[in-house]
Design a protein around this nucleic acid. Structure first.
Lengths: 137, 137
DNA sequence: ATTGCAAATGCAACTAAATTGCAAAAATAA
DNA sequence: TTATTTTTGCAATTTAGTTGCATTTGCAAT
């Protein structure tokens, strides 16, 4: 789906920042942090606006968080059926410890039995290793 | 095991900071961040020293990282068989999204088939939910 | 016990990451 | 076209983490 349509679908006003940010995520193929977004977009947008854009995209179900051992929080496009009421990003992530990039894998999180005195909402899973590109280098 | 013995076992010099920090982890029963450690220990130790203590503890296999969607990096005691050459903290973690506390669960990470073009070193897993204490509150 | 040396600490300064409040500007609905 | 609400940009602030260096300390060798 295109940037404009995605914004409309999630009831977000169409602004220059949002459109551009969304385009970056649509073409990135990997998770992007606030800092990486700033790099890609140059000085055209305010730092704070970018933070707020990411947060509203997450709230509305366009992006989901992708995090790793470095403490860097990145975001990645959600699947079609995420919205403001629920995120369903139940796939495994991959984090390359060499280049730092993170990717969503098309792989469901395995079932498991968790203690039933804990109210579990979702499970996050990330495999750490070396990506194809870094293996060659 | 006691703090002093743990330091010796991992070939770390015994200092006041290290002993006290280790005691906190031994009694905490949960993962602690740098900031939480500062709170617990008061002004007796230097901020920078605490950062360096945490890093050397991780290097030597006394502590392992525990991270979550907030980007806060915490640490938790390793099992006995971790050392400088390998961490084997292959258990599931729990993160309470209300109080922010994180815990190690005594639950192995389920097996799964990962793409074989990726060189996987370890898998990290965290269940997000509401802890017992917060459920009551 | 004393000494020598490597390792650890404390401090100051710095870099980076993230948030807040507010006034101005822009997007949508009426 | 206007009114209303949302978003933006800016300045300031807070929080987190790092670096370099001089001083101190732990510990092993003597």
């Amino acid at each position: 789906m295109e940037a404009t349509d995605l914004l409309k679908k999630h009831k977000l006003r169409k602004t220059a920042t949002r459109t551009e940010v969304l385009k970056e995520y649509l073409s990135a193929g990997r998770a992007l942090s606030h800092a990486e977004l700033e790099d890609k977009l140059g000085d055209h947008f305010d730092r704070v606006t970018l933070y707020r854009t990411l947060h509203s995209f997450e709230d509305k179900g366009l992006l989901h968080k992708v995090y790793d051992e470095t403490g860097t929080v990145r975001f990645s496009l959600c699947s079609d059926h995420c919205d403001i009421s629920s995120h369903e990003d139940d796939h495994v992530h991959f984090h390359c410890t060499k280049c730092g990039n993170s990717y969503c894998l098309d792989l469901p999180i395995p079932e498991m039995n968790l203690p039933n005195d804990l109210m579990i909402n979702d499970v996050y899973m990330v495999a750490n290793g070396i990506c194809k590109t870094c293996q060659r280098a």
